[in-house]
């Protein structure tokens, strides 16, 4: 330890770092739930079920929203504030659409008799997809705050940190949904 090594500090903003670790933590919760699903799947009296069609449309909305958020971030960095506002707004709409479609999907399942406590496999679906939707709802709150700031002409925004944080989180819930969907389709 005799040589002084220049340590590069703050390579990544502490808030972003915090978010990445939080993402790791959230992943562990879903890993716990999906592995419980696999364990349960391999036991007797497991009843298979069909995923509601609404989930496919919600997936499309989710992917599109990620794309619009990428565009929003790019616009922000290029200081094209008009385009930025537009893209944030569209993302917000698509995100809300996603949550509504998930709720609609559940309601069609419910009507066909697959209620949350009808069988363990369906109970798992409600819990896993429901918890994911809650995470998306959390992202929506962040998006709303971002949009309020973007449309308020009195607030001058210079820092790209909030946009980047929201974008990272949003892409995470997007990818998490795709993982969950593939998982639910594959594990049967």
């Amino acid at each position: 330890m005799n040589i002084v090594e220049p340590v590069q500090r703050n390579r990544i903003h502490p808030y972003k770092f915090n978010l990445w670790i939080a993402i790791g933590s959230m992943l562990m919760m879903f890993a716990g739930l999906t592995s419980a699903y696999i364990v349960k799947r391999n036991q007797s009296n497991w009843v298979d079920y069909e995923l509601p069609a609404a989930f496919w449309f919600s997936t499309a909305a989710m992917i599109l929203s990620s794309v619009t958020l990428i565009l929003a971030k790019r616009s922000f960095k290029e200081k094209a504030m008009q385009a930025y506002r537009r893209y944030v707004f569209v993302t917000l709409i698509l995100g809300t659409l996603f949550v509504l479609l998930q709720v609609y999907g559940f309601s069609t399942m419910w009507k066909s008799g697959l209620t949350h406590n009808s069988t363990v496999s369906v109970s798992f679906l409600y819990v896993i997809v429901g918890l994911h939707a809650l995470h998306v709802a959390g992202g929506l709150v962040a998006l709303i705050l971002l949009a309020l700031k973007a449309f308020n002409s009195k607030v001058k925004t210079y820092s790209s940190i909030p946009v980047e944080l929201v974008a990272t989180y949003w892409h995470f819930v997007d990818l998490l949904w795709i993982y969950l969907l593939v998982f639910l389709v594959m594990i049967r």
Partner: peptide, 25 residues
């Protein structure tokens, strides 16, 4: 803590469902 507590949280959520919402996890 960051990697293991969320798994307990998932167990606690499932247990709360079993207790209060009639599921059978």
């Amino acid at each position: 803590g960051v990697l293991s507590f969320p798994v307990l949280l998932s167990g606690a959520v499932l247990l709360l469902f079993d207790r209060n919402l009639g599921t059978s996890f």
